[in-house]
Design a protein around this nucleic acid. Structure first.
Length: 483
RNA sequence: GCGGGCGUAACUCAAUUGGUAGAGUGUCAGCCUUCCAAGCUGAAUGUUGCCGGUUCGAACCCGGUCGCCCGCUCCA
């Protein structure tokens, strides 16, 4: 992390420079939803394009897919999201603590059993097992807690709120005349779009195990607590790759992708000391995972997950096989074997990645007693890669600068600027993260045919011939290292 | 979702605390300017988040609501 101690500075800069705005701001904003402005959308696309190239085009055995946000409701039954995303919660009004209602009851049953009250325990267990069959799940659980006077474990109080269901999936009406029953969910993860297309791709794309399917796209989660700028949003974008391997080789593949993904983060210019792995302890793994590790970044708000690498085993394909009734196994012709592949997942939050890039690039420096704010991001990511200026607003210089702009624009994202002083223009683009500026002066047109190239990171300048501009930028991008 | 804090221009903030809003930065225009936020002149932008109440009068007090921050909780 740089000299940031909270996200506030980044939030302000992101707004002031047009990276990220809060959604529907003129109406007071919509909680935990954000929009990308002119610079933000460029940055986002750059990251996405680099990821796509690195994860698909650079691997002959990884192909892409772009599945719809809407999916058959059965998908979420199979994936376990209907069950797992639906926790009945209850609050102790005294201590303000929240508990899972079913867990409270289970604890109570355990305690009763321990005290030798086996009959009572069995009775409550039966009520718990059949909960959801009387009124509804929430009400049934609430009734059990009230009737058996289950007290809050921490405060000992018996002062509960209602049991509430926290369904973290968004539901929407599907079809113009739809009723409650044919609602569909907005996908809470993009992964399932890959699993349900696994067979299509296997049948049509001449891939063989081990192979991967990659996808980027929006996912939606109705987070109980959605906070911290774009770190945890209700609508966010994932970049995922599911790698299908032969069972037994999954541990190796997991280790391989773990390594590959960390080096990807370094390759987009994130400083190594701000990255680390965080393994999920075995007892905290998700319902589908055999192993899981987070790639974490040292945000101003602490070490937080940017990407997850999971061994999803054959959970998803087996589940879809079961619920769809379609065979989803793989026949290995060479070894004459049939199996359901294991899946190694790499799943990165694009919005988190953008936040990471902004945080890691952000610097405040002192230059001649003045503060200089600069985003030292990788030149490939920069929303504006090259600034082109006439030194002063004079004809002669302007025409040459416009010509340079026209040439560079075919290969780079370029911004022409002739307003204000030259220093102001440099600093303005420093805040946008622009790595190179080209300035045309009177020597250019009168004597040497050279321009000044000014580098963002150390503010150094060089005189280079007009016909070497493209080359200098190319080299500058190639040689770039985070500083 | 609960508790606490906060919400004034695009950004950062001020307003003698009830007497109807200002500064710096930024933006735009003009002049000037031969390399690091220079200078000069001028301009635009606010129903003080929103709605209601109290009051002769509300940015300020009260209620509601929306949003943000911190903590709790949750985290597939």
């Amino acid at each position: 992390m740089s000299n940031l101690d909270s996200l506030d500075t980044i939030v302000s800069l992101a707004k002031a420079r047009g990276f990220i705005f809060q959604s529907s701001e003129i109406y007071g904003g919509l909680s935990a939803v954000y929009d990308y402005g002119p610079l933000g959308v460029e940055l986002k696309r750059n990251i996405q394009n680099i990821w796509w190239k690195d994860m698909t085009q650079r691997h002959e055995n990884i192909v892409g897919v772009d599945a719809a946000v809407f999916m058959h409701p059965k998908v979420w039954e199979a994936s376990g999201h209907i069950e797992g995303f639906n926790d009945p919660m209850i609050d102790d009004k005294q201590s303000k603590k929240r508990y899972r209602a079913d867990m409270l009851i289970e604890d109570c049953i355990l305690n009763l059993a321990k005290d030798g009250k086996k009959e009572k325990a069995a009775e409550i267990q039966e009520l718990l097992n059949t909960s959801g069959t009387r009124k509804n799940l929430a009400k049934d659980l609430y009734d059990i807690i009230i009737e058996n006077e289950i007290k809050a474990p921490d405060s000992g109080a018996f002062d509960w709120t209602e049991v509430r269901q926290f369904n973290l999936m968004f539901k929407t009406a599907f079809g113009a005349t739809s009723s409650e029953d044919d609602g569909v969910y907005l996908r809470p993860e993009t992964a399932q779009g890959i699993f349900v297309n696994y067979k299509n791709i296997l049948d049509t794309s001449r891939v063989s195990v081990p192979f991967g399917i990659a996808q980027t796209g929006k996912a939606f989660r109705n987070e109980v607590v959605a906070r911290q700028f774009v770190f945890r949003m209700r609508e966010f974008e994932q970049m995922e790759m599911q790698y299908f391997v032969e069972p037994g080789t999954d541990s190796n593949a997991y280790a391989l992708w773990k390594k590959k993904r960390l080096s990807w983060h370094k390759s987009i210019g994130i400083r190594e000391e701000n990255l680390r792995f965080s393994d999920h302890p075995k007892d905290k793994l998700a319902h589908y995972a055999l192993a899981a590790v987070d790639v974490q970044y040292k945000f101003p708000i602490g070490w937080q997950e940017v990407e997850g690498i999971h061994n999803r085993s054959d959970f998803d394909l087996t589940q879809h096989q079961k619920l769809s009734g379609k065979k989803l196994d793989y026949f290995d012709q060479k070894n004459n074997k049939r199996y359901v592949p294991y899946v190694i997942e790499t799943s990165i939050g694009l919005d988190r990645c953008i936040l990471m890039v902004l945080c890691d690039a952000y610097r405040e420096e002192e230059v001649n007693g003045e503060k200089r704010t600069v985003l030292k991001m990788h030149p490939e990511l920069a929303p504006i890669q090259v600034g082109v200026f006439p030194l002063v607003k004079k004809s002669g210089l302007q025409e040459v600068a416009r010509k340079i702009e026209a040439e560079l624009i075919e290969h780079y994202s370029v911004r022409y600027d002739e307003t204000g002083s030259i220093g102001k223009r440099y600093r303005r683009l420093d805040e946008a993260g622009t790595p190179f500026c080209i300035t045309v002066d009177f020597d250019t047109i009168e004597t040497d045919n050279k321009v000044t190239i000014r580098y963002r990171d150390d503010m150094s300048q060089e005189r280079i011939p007009l016909n070497k501009i493209a080359y200098a930028i190319k080299e500058g991008i190639k040689d770039w290292k985070p500083s």
